[in-house]
Design a protein around this nucleic acid. Structure first.
Length: 218
DNA sequence: AACAACCACAACCGCTTCACA
DNA sequence: TTGTGAAGCGGTTGTGGTTGT
């Protein structure tokens, strides 16, 4: 009974800089993947999930930190209208941004604004100064931009989910799009928005989201 | 100065999906 | 085809800084 190996307790809570350094060094040396062994072999007393999340959201190269630009913000709003809470998909269209960051930003900034119908003024100066009440708080890991990892291309693996979501996502998107004055034009897309329903089935549900995005010029 | 309330963000949890034997 | 472990995802909670009283 007692010969079971007692696992060391998994550490939780905020990551310390030295832990970041250990994880970063380890992943840069050995590569991503197999997160369960990363925590063991690196000596970090963290769960594999925690390591993966920390790497993905903060330590990975090309992570973009700091305030969202007006363009990014608009994109999030528009895509959320189309896709709902598909944060990984939305983040996939924002180079350097993570799903967690997009989700947090939505929940803290955009959600309430959209609910109240207010929009942030487009004045760029407002962007630098506005809402930076807490800006200096946690900006320790600033990096520059680039693309997301190729492995987790959410748009490809997303086909199966679509059917499940079609009732919630697609039923209103045309109305939303129209209300936002989008003009949909695509080689494979009928010009008339009303033509998206085939035999009671929303036509859009069978599309790859890529087509959807391209159609909106995103 | 002290404390409570508020806010933004980091991290965790549980479920789902994927990959592979 | 099926079982299993790893990875991914989204919702929720925790943490710590700022502001107001």
């Amino acid at each position: 009974m007692e010969n079971k190996q007692v696992k060391p307790p998994i550490k939780k809570g905020l990551w310390k800089p030295e832990e970041d350094l250990i994880l970063k060094t380890y992943v840069e040396t050995h590569g991503e993947g197999n997160w369960a062994t990363v925590s063991e072999k690196s000596g970090l007393m963290r769960g594999g999930k925690s390591c993966r999340l920390r790497w993905k959201n903060y330590l990975r190269p090309n992570i973009k930190r700091g305030e969202m630009s007006q363009e990014e913000e608009d994109l999030i709003i528009r895509m959320h209208k189309l896709l709902g809470n598909r944060w990984s998909l939305i983040a996939g269209r924002l180079p350097g941004r993570t799903d967690n960051e997009v989700k947090n930003y939505w929940n803290t900034h955009l959600n309430k604004r959209c609910r109240t119908g207010k929009r942030k003024p487009t004045d760029p100066s407002n962007h630098q100064n506005g809402n930076d009440k807490y800006k200096s708080k946690k900006q320790c890991n600033s990096q520059t931009t680039s693309s997301t990892s190729p492995k987790s291309n959410p748009e490809e693996s997303d086909g199966k989910k679509k059917e499940k979501e079609e009732s919630t996502v697609t039923n209103t998107w045309i109305q939303d799009a129209q209300s936002m004055n989008y003009y949909i034009e695509s080689p494979v897309m009928p010009v008339c928005n009303d033509a998206f329903v085939l035999n009671d089935e929303p036509f859009i549900a069978y599309w790859d989201s890529f087509v959807l995005f391209e159609s909106f010029g995103l």
